Simulated scan of single mutants.
Amino acid sequence: MAKADDLERFPFYEEGRVPQYHKYHAGVSFLDEIELIWGKRWGAQGIGRLREVAMVRPTETEVRKLYEKDSAFFVFNGTTPDLTLMQEQHFNLAKVYEKLDIKVHYSSWSDEAPRSAYGPMKRSISAAAGFVINGGAIIPREATPYWRGRSRYVSQFLMNLGCPILYTVHGHGVCEIGASTRMSDDFIILMLSTDCNRDGAEQVIPILRRAGYKEVHLAYSPGPLYAYHEEVPGWMHSDMWVVPLDAKLAMIYPPWCDYETIRRLDQIGYELIECPREEIELFPTNALTIEPRRIIMNAAATKTTALLEKHGVEVITVDYSEVHKYGGGIRCNTMQLIRDQGPVTF
């Protein structure tokens, strides 16, 4: 181990000379130093073995009677989950992670009930709002007024963990980047939808490319206008209709996936498994890939489990149906922090 006063530990050190700036700048990247400066090699780039996650415990903020006064505005069907059961299922998911030797960091975002820019903050347990890729996090700008402000809590939480912030979506950009889908270490799907506009996408794409994604595929979503439809949550985020399973193997739900995305996945050699229509409301595509051919999924989706097992995928199940009533699933509730290097697409 080098001593504290050992000058040889500095890159390109030459006695009696000023730092060799040109060599240091060209030869040492941010990622080369991230563990030395920030303590860990932060990054959950693709589907390599998951090592650390963060979760936000459910509280009364998820079941306010306010939401029932106008359920269409709050984008749910008006069926409020049972908080005690919701907390139990969320806790059981965390215990599954821990049994798999995945470290879980807990946050309540705040000592008090989290607030949006305009009042209560719905879906505060959606920890996936924090999006960590190689080198640090991209902080979203949320789509709806009662989510606005979650980005502040996410930023403070990540900084307290020691994770650097690479970028924050701002201006008129909207991008709930956590809802994009990391298909591999060099391929990601980002969807233009109610929750990501063109401005937001254009802001984050250069950051994604710099982190090592060779392709950022833009998918396209339909969306609501005035009326609430049960399928609205599936339209909003790509993680509601596609889940990566291995290098060039994924499960999709075609009715929520634009056909150009299916075409592109086929072009680059993906084998696609079609999610059973009768189980889509059980959020099987909002599963979380632990490592190639190993996922955590809602236990109620038994037909989907059997289908994936026939394709050599190990499915670890946890009952999560009560949590779904608030509008999010297993992947939505999990902030991926650190993964091992995984497979690539290109």
Rank of each mutant, 00 (worst) to 15 (best):
H105W: 13
A137F: 09
D82Q: 10
R152N: 13
K122S: 03
A128G: 06
A94P: 02
A137Y: 07
I125G: 04
K99C: 08
L93A: 04
Q156D: 07
K95D: 05
A143D: 03
Q87W: 12
E142F: 13
F91E: 14
I102Q: 09
N92Q: 15
Y97N: 01
R148N: 10
F157E: 00
V75H: 01
A94H: 04
L158G: 01
Y106N: 12
W147E: 13
S151C: 08
H90D: 13
A113D: 12
Y106C: 10
L161H: 05
P81A: 09
S126D: 13
V96K: 03
K103Y: 08
F91W: 14
L161F: 06
Q87R: 15
L83N: 06
T79K: 00
D82R: 06
V132C: 09
L100S: 06
I133H: 06
M121F: 02
E98P: 01
K95S: 05
R115S: 03
S108A: 12
R141F: 05
T84W: 09
I133W: 07
W147R: 15
R150Y: 06
R115Q: 14
A128N: 13
D111P: 12
P140W: 01
I138P: 07
L158A: 02
P81H: 05
G149W: 03
R148I: 12
D101W: 11
F157G: 00
R152H: 13
L161T: 06
A129S: 14
W109P: 03
Q87P: 09
K103N: 10
S151Y: 14
S155D: 03
S126T: 11
A129H: 14
F74M: 02
Y118V: 15
G130L: 08
I139K: 04
L158I: 02
V96E: 01
R152D: 12
P120F: 04
